[in-house]
Write a protein that binds this DNA or RNA. Structure first.
Lengths: 199, 199
DNA sequence: CTATGTATACTAACCAGTGAATATACACAA
DNA sequence: TTGTGTATATTCACTGGTTAGTATACATAG
């Protein structure tokens, strides 16, 4: 167990993920993470320099899987570009109906730690959102959209807005409303030849 | 001072407002609020039953002024409906450039306390956003827009999305991008006779 | 003299981080 | 094969500080 090198650390990150996502950073003690991971606090501090370091690991661990999920939802969806982007919102709405759902871990962490501008967690969250934005931008560019970055940012704003609003109202229909807005914005930005019907 | 009845309580709420907005709920101790207000903790607990009660008072105190500001920005702006709504985003972008700006207190509180669904702070935040949504809806309805509630929610999503994104990236230009998206969505929803030019 | 309001001093729990010791496993020498 | 050193990994027990909330007493106004 010890020398496998990966198991204990991974178990701690997994425990941190469950607890931090559910209760927030300051709402979870290092002791609680250690207990959930089945190790002593001292062991946790062997693998992570500090609580902040653990928080950074928690968010880093969510980065790639999260992006992969969005890409998968987009890829698997049928229809044109607007419909494929809208599918991301619809899938997210489905996720948001699960009782354990609590919004976007990156946004919630950045909101909680907003008074610590240089905090690693905020840099990781910002990088995560930039990756998503860049993926959208490249996708739009490939479809011949005129201002792909601007449109990507508008979609991102709708997405992150729906995280916040759905978390507040516990009403996932806002996510579908955001998807419809995204659909409309993309449809309007499509080059003439690719629209469903010209006018 | 004592029997004036309002001064001490108001000073405590004012201190709570500054501290909670800046550092978050769990990041601020009751002692810190009491010290900033210039009273002892026991006095604070005379005026407020608990910390949660104080948090509720903090958010309640932000409700009306916040809404009034939005309405004022809308009313004072020149141009048609799309431009007047966009003006809200532009004014917000200006606010967001101030170094003490830290996003929307309602959203940040609801994100921090997401694991306490019935918490008064979340109910107050939800009510605040509903009021804004309803004001927008009524405004759109008065302009003859076909699905005013849907459009109001789309604008709200862009607004709250820009709170989250600008807080994360510390880049207020996202707020202007959101305003442009809002402009486009409203323009497209305007009844034929009120558009700048028909087609 | 009683309501309201304020202060001093306290509790019991919690929290991030550490000191010192111990256990395990692998490399390498005999 | 056996012994031994060393880096990795883990535990127990602790510290100093903070926290929400309270028991008690005192002041002041009507």
């Amino acid at each position: 167990m010890a020398r496998s090198g990966i198991s204990t650390r991974e178990r701690i990150i997994s425990a941190a993920n469950a607890l931090f996502y559910n209760d927030g950073i300051r709402g979870v003690s290092v002791d609680a993470v250690a207990e959930k991971a089945g190790v002593t606090k001292r062991t946790l501090y062997y693998h992570f320099r500090s609580k902040d370091d653990l928080v950074a690991a928690y968010l880093t661990g969510r980065d790639q899987p999260n992006l992969a999920l969005f890409r998968q939802w987009f890829t698997k969806a049928e229809g044109g570009l607007p419909a494929k982007v809208e599918a991301i919102f619809r899938n997210l709405a489905r996720s948001a109906r699960h009782p354990k759902w609590k919004g976007c871990g990156f946004l919630r962490t950045s909101a909680e730690l907003a008074n610590m501008p240089g905090h690693p967690a905020i840099r990781i969250g910002a990088a995560h959102k930039k990756k998503f934005e860049e993926w959208l931008r490249a996708t739009f560019e490939a479809e011949g959209i005129a201002e792909p970055l601007r449109l990507a940012r508008q979609i991102l704003l709708l997405l992150d807005g729906s995280f916040a609003v759905v978390l507040l109202h516990r009403d996932s229909s806002y996510m579908e409303t955001a998807g419809e807005a995204a659909h409309a914005l993309i449809e309007a930005a499509l080059p003439a030849g690719k629209k469903r019907r010209g006018w």
